[in-house]
Nucleic acid binder design. Structure first.
Lengths: 340, 340
DNA sequence: CGTTAGCACTCTCGGATATCGAGTGCTAAT
DNA sequence: ATTAGCACTCGATATCCGAGAGTGCTAACG
């Protein structure tokens, strides 16, 4: 692919992102300084179409980028931009405010993200597995129920309901809490080896059954309640011309309403700092007309989760990626302050 | 309003709910056994329109019910129905399953609600203020932060972050927890009187500042994280013909995305067992074309929160109200089992 | 040989027009 | 009081037409 073809492809993508209209050779020649005539551009576009980078919605319309075209653009052609300083400033101030609830911080991030991009924003709560225990406490709920509260080194708090095999006194629970904390603090679950377990059993022989229940509760991955996903900006999707088609919009709505699917979607993006998936690269057919841009945020140095925007393939990739990077950074910092 | 007018109004509402088309005199005469001719019905309808129960979208279309018409229907004319036995059976089985997370239970309720009604479902988490304390525990997070975990008599668990005025040892926290629990268990916050406070201060003179922080944390109303609202079924809204208009649909989407508005909306429905608000009766202009049906669910005998459906005014009120009652009941029972 | 001007052709979109049908209100008859 | 009949209204639907944008092809050009 020679230099000029790249220029043409880039111009097509940028113009289409801007106008949502198929772009023709004349527009290209006029608006972008390519220095050649529309006829030449037509030839190039025909080539690009043959190579699979462009498509024609119908004969005698302009061209639009194909998935492959977007992919090439994103990988090779995209300008790097920085978010406008006013925005950066505004966000810095917003995130400088002390927020004392993790959930609110995440929700705020989703809100900003969707506002600034006119797309749907997805933000998952910190994944805290595997995790280093800091404190474990079993509190009585009722005769046969208790709640295990676990505090991690990262400063996150989770709770798990326990079904007690036998009634336990408050003192029992207190004792088991103390021992669990003493033994497990500083360890991750996978590093709770046999030795530690043995010792634990010895020490808590009296309440063996109870202990088992408690350990069991440590095992399962974060539950829905501990690990929610914030989805904001559904309405903004409808501002995009490609979602005037209600069928398609409904499909996306239905998908993002299912927490487990969203979590799966984010999970599949891996742990790369910044990931862009375009159209058919997405794992769900309902998203074949969408793109997802996601970034990681961190907690205690470790990747803690992803934030993402979901929108039409025709999104402003440079602007959105730069914003994502900024927000991921701000969120990481704010989280660190909130939770530590 | 005489008997026949009522019959006509009822028929208009029922037919319009069914077909989403303005109903004319001929249809009415044919489909509903009113025993009079279309001309007579026309006269009745003209009267009903004058009285404000019906409206005409434009001259020479059929009539549709006005807000007032729906109101009269709901208050006076609506048949009471029971949900189909298969559905009841299915739901009973669904709710008989042990669910071990309150959040999941609420989410499930929202899901069922929206599926069965083709409307948007709103379910708020139990309001737990004012509340009877059962256990309070302060756990260390870091040098200067701690988390106050409070367990209520109803079996709910909440957490509040604390900013420590001065570093506190684990033993300090343990001690303060024990004292707080001993003193406050069995009380609601409003009943924590001066005497108790005085005694608390005496007993915990050593850690006065810390105590203040902890008591402060008890005060604020449930935070967003403790009291989420589940909103499900946005996509279903778009199945209703009245939401083909994207403007209107977007407005509703935007509204229900804001947790505080939804909470406010549910809060305003009061504590009545079952509440229906129609069109302009709603507090937000964006809902002037919608109706909301809500019901209470309970926990420990007290009203704990509301479940609701939001849909077009043209909804099947008898079916929806009966379903709401059933679900509120099932949710109450399941919650009792889960949490106790 | 790459580039460009010219041109015929294609296809969508918007607006104007005609038609259809459902429904009404009114009048007069029962 | 009810009803049949009738003229009239008005939205929805189908159809047609022209404008405009864009293409691909061909032939000329430097």
């Amino acid at each position: 692919m020679d230099r000029r073809k790249q220029q043409v492809l880039k111009a097509v993508v940028e113009d289409y992102v801007d106008t949502a209209e198929p772009v023709g050779s004349r527009t290209l020649a006029r608006k972008y300084g390519l220095g050649v005539s529309p006829a030449t551009i037509r030839n190039e576009m025909a080539d690009l179409e043959e190579m699979g980078f462009l498509e024609q919605p119908h004969t005698s319309a302009g061209r639009i980028p194909s998935d492959r075209g977007y992919r090439f653009f994103v990988d090779m052609l995209m300008d790097t931009v920085v978010p406008p300083p006013e925005l950066v400033e505004r966000l810095r101030r917003l995130y400088a405010e002390r927020v004392d609830q993790v959930g609110r911080l995440l929700r705020q991030t989703a809100q900003v993200l969707s506002e600034a991009t006119d797309c749907l924003a997805l933000v998952e709560a910190p994944r805290v597995e595997p995790v280093t225990f800091r404190h474990l406490q079993v509190l009585p709920l009722s005769e046969r129920r208790a709640v295990l509260v676990l505090v991690t080194d990262e400063g996150l708090v989770q709770q798990r309901l326990l079904e007690l095999p036998e009634p336990a006194s408050e003192a029992d629970l207190q004792r088991i809490s103390a021992v669990l904390t003493r033994r497990l603090a500083g360890l991750t679950l996978d590093r709770v080896g046999h030795t530690v377990l043995r010792e634990l059993y010895d020490e808590l022989a009296a309440c063996g059954a109870l202990l088992e229940v408690a350990l069991e509760a440590l095992r399962p991955p974060a539950s829905d309640e501990d690990h929610p996903v914030f989805v904001l900006g559904t309405r903004r999707l409808f501002r995009q011309p490609e979602f005037q088609d209600l069928e398609r919009a409904q499909a996306v709505l239905g998908l993002v309403e299912r927490q487990e699917l969203v979590r799966d979607l984010l999970g599949r993006q891996g742990n790369e700092e910044l990931v862009i998936t375009i159209g058919h690269e997405n794992p769900y057919p309902d998203l074949y007309d969408c793109s997802v841009v996601s970034a990681t945020y961190r907690l205690g140095g470790e990747v803690a989760g992803r934030i993402a925007v979901l929108g039409p393939k025709r999104m402003h990739y440079p602007r959105i990626t730069s914003l994502m990077e900024l927000l991921a950074q701000l969120l990481t910092e704010a989280l660190e302050r909130t939770v530590r």
